[in-house]
Simulated scan of single mutants.
Amino acid sequence: MKGSDVGLQFLTGELQGSHDPSGVVFTVLAALSGMEREYIRDRTLEGHESARKRGKTIGGAGVTDDAMLTMARHLRDQDMSLRDIAKKLVITHGTKKGQHPSPATVMRMLREHDERTGTTVAD
């Protein structure tokens, strides 16, 4: 990389100065960055699992309700796609009031209902 005049320069800190990015400093920093990213990911997943065990929901505020589930089930029985079902539903409360739920939200709502009731949907 020296031939292309590319370098790594730290403006502050203990490593202040210019360094060859192909050198050991850059390699060590890249490895530490990867390790930190994995650590954050693992801790986040542990926190989600802990919250689930305590009965807490993960993610944003729920936008579905019983009326929406009933309508989604009715539309699914008419062989509508998740995308089309989502376009027919309207969120009735919260900050997303008046908007349509995403197809992923509809799929999750129907799947959770099916798991609770032991229902299976024919393909």
Rank of each mutant, 00 (worst) to 15 (best):
M109D: 05
D84I: 02
H74M: 08
G55P: 07
I40T: 15
V25C: 02
R43I: 05
A104E: 11
V90Q: 13
E46D: 15
F26N: 09
A30Y: 01
S50P: 01
R54N: 14
M71Q: 14
T95W: 03
A61I: 11
I85K: 04
P101S: 10
L75H: 04
H100F: 03
T12V: 07
E14K: 11
E49D: 14
V106C: 06
D77W: 00
R76M: 10
L11Y: 08
L82D: 08
D65A: 02
G55A: 06
K88V: 12
I58M: 03
G62N: 14
E49A: 15
A31G: 04
S81Q: 00
G60M: 05
G23T: 05
D77I: 00
L82G: 02
S50V: 07
E14L: 05
S18A: 12
S18F: 11
E46I: 02
H100T: 12
D84W: 00
R76Q: 13
K97I: 07
K87V: 02
M80W: 12
R52I: 09
T12Y: 09
G13E: 01
D20S: 12
D77F: 00
D84E: 13
K56G: 08
G60E: 06
L89I: 12
R83I: 12
H74P: 01
A72S: 06
R52L: 15
G59P: 08
T12W: 05
T70I: 05
R37T: 10
T92E: 14
E49G: 00
R83A: 15
A31R: 00
I85F: 01
A61M: 09
V28L: 15
R43H: 08
A30N: 07
V28R: 14
A72C: 05
R43D: 02
I58L: 11
A51P: 07
P103F: 04
V90M: 10
T95A: 12
S102F: 08
P101K: 09
M35D: 07
R76T: 06
S18Y: 11
G23H: 04
F26R: 04
Q16V: 12
E14V: 03
S81K: 06
L11N: 13
L15G: 00
D66V: 03
D42V: 09
E112R: 15
T105G: 09
R111N: 10
M35F: 15
M107R: 13
R73T: 09
E14G: 10
R83F: 06
R76S: 14
I85H: 02
L75I: 01
G55N: 06
R73H: 01
D65S: 06
E36R: 14
I40F: 11
H74T: 12
A86L: 07
M80K: 14
D77P: 00
S102I: 06
A86P: 10
L32M: 15
V106N: 06
K87P: 00
P103E: 07
I85Y: 01
E46K: 09
T92V: 15
A67V: 08
T57C: 03
R111S: 10
D79G: 01
G98N: 08
G47H: 06
D42I: 03
A104D: 12
A104N: 13
G13M: 01
K87M: 11
H19S: 08
H93D: 13
Q16D: 02
R43L: 13
Q99M: 15
L69T: 04
D79R: 12
I85E: 02
T44G: 04
A30I: 04
S22I: 03
